[in-house]
Design a protein around this nucleic acid. Structure first.
Lengths: 175, 175
DNA sequence: CAAACCAATTGCATTTTGCAATCAGTTGCA
DNA sequence: TGCAACTGATTGCAAAATGCAATTGGTTTG
């Protein structure tokens, strides 16, 4: 599962990067879920990735230049993973992918609300979101207040759906 | 490699559809290369798919509703494969994917000129291309003359690059 | 009538995946 | 201090997917 370079076609090479079942899931959880640690990615994703596969994919995505790894200063053995610009540039693709899936596949309502909001926001929202990610992961300066982020908007939409579908559950239902 | 439905997330479900190394390659060759027959797909793609995998993926894409299969009236054992609207709707994703690959991966110039033209054309060009595909594959009426198609434009761009890189080779160099 | 072509299928070795158990070191709490 | 919980992984193993070559039964072409 390294790169074969079967051909120099852009679509083929893109597939060689994330044409598997887990790489994009990991990037999705980092981009939309804000996950930065091994354990968060391991336990947090709905799909249940195995730890050996997660370790392998993190390594591979680092080799490919999509992620970087740094020691977490608050915990001697904690590693913190960051997106590179190469990974942040996937946001429009993920937005289109989510929009396509919402139309053509049996998605669940709770999990597709984010895709819907992102689709409605269009390229301007994608650009704002990419700026936020650059701020979080690359240390780029940002003038967006923390409570007005795209991620907060998406999360609020998700929680509204969950609350509406399970009215007795209160407001603590977070996946 | 059927669908597991690990979760109802649109991105996850999309990955379950074409999160492998061949499905999207086949769709690329049908969409951009105009391939409709088993042999064309088998011999025509640069990446060299094996016939058993091609057969498996064609079957799978049909089960998923991305392709249909019909007998070719001109040849009793020839099958002709057609894209469905579900597959044609992937054009914007393929355009973004090509654009991303062109920036971040070691693509070859000949093979990325199509992606570049498609990116420059933007959504209006994608829409025209999707209409052409509907005309070819779904029998939808079309008012575009055959010599002004997006596919012809992309092919002309490709041939111009090939001719420029190998000036002595004449105009018969087609992959 | 033979050679080429058609869409697959079969057999088999290699690779990848998924799962569970485990690892050594670190931290939080009593 | 002692011990459980947590950290990012690693190992072993069975099952599945892949890649390759050969083959199949039928059709068309020269």
């Amino acid at each position: 599962m390294r790169i074969d370079r079967r051909s120099g076609c852009p679509i083929n090479l893109s597939l060689e990067v994330f044409g598997d079942r887990w790489s994009l899931i990991i990037l999705r959880d980092m981009i939309f879920g804000g996950k930065r640690h091994f354990r968060d990615l391991l336990n947090g994703s709905l799909e249940g990735i195995a730890s050996n596969i997660l370790a392998d994919r993190l390594k591979r995505l680092m080799e490919l230049g999509m992620l970087t790894r740094a020691d977490d200063p608050t915990h001697k053995q904690k590693a913190i993973y960051s997106l590179t610009e190469m990974a942040i540039a996937l946001v429009p693709i993920l937005a289109h992918l989510g929009a396509w899936g919402r139309v053509w596949l049996p998605v669940s309502e709770e999990l597709s609300i984010r895709a819907e909001l992102l689709e409605k926001g269009g390229p301007p929202m994608w650009d704002r979101f990419m700026d936020e990610l650059r701020h979080e992961h690359l240390g780029t300066p940002s003038d967006t207040p923390p409570d007005a982020t795209v991620r907060a908007t998406l999360q609020a939409g998700y929680e509204a759906v969950v609350a509406r579908k399970a009215p007795g559950a209160g407001c603590d239902a977070v996946a």
